[in-house]
């Protein structure tokens, strides 16, 4: 998994590519939790290039959402591929996340 992070004031845009799994998600978790601890309140995770997610990856996204919300911020998922959305929907995670079709829309949606 590759993670590219762009920081803009109190927002970070995190572009993830590859697989979000039990072995890769700790890195994503660490980077984003650090950012939130440093004052970031708006988090965009761009999943456009993510081809696979397992239940550990899902748990990481849920944990990050909780972390950001507890810091009175918000987290948006952008450009989520249909297959990934289908899996997230299967466990009703589509009900707790905000999905945006584009990164631009996610950025302006806060």
């Amino acid at each position: 998994m590759d993670i590219l992070i762009e920081k803009k004031d109190d927002m970070i845009i995190c572009r993830v590519s590859g697989e979000i799994t039990f072995s890769t998600s700790p890195d994503l978790r660490k980077k984003l939790i650090e950012a939130v601890d440093q004052g970031v309140k708006k988090v965009v995770i761009n999943l456009k290039n993510v081809g696979y997610i397992d239940s550990s990856g899902m748990a990481t996204l849920v944990e990050l959402l909780q972390k950001v919300k507890s810091a009175e911020g918000d987290l948006k998922l952008a450009e989520t591929p249909e297959k990934i959305k289908e899996i997230l929907d299967m466990v009703r995670l589509k009900d707790i996340f905000d999905f945006e079709d584009s990164e631009e829309k996610a950025i302006t949606s806060f």
Partner: peptide, 15 residues
Amino acid sequence: RQELKGRGVYLIRRL
């Protein structure tokens, strides 16, 4: 839905 565990077996049963 906010739990950090408990999705694996459910997904297997669904798929």
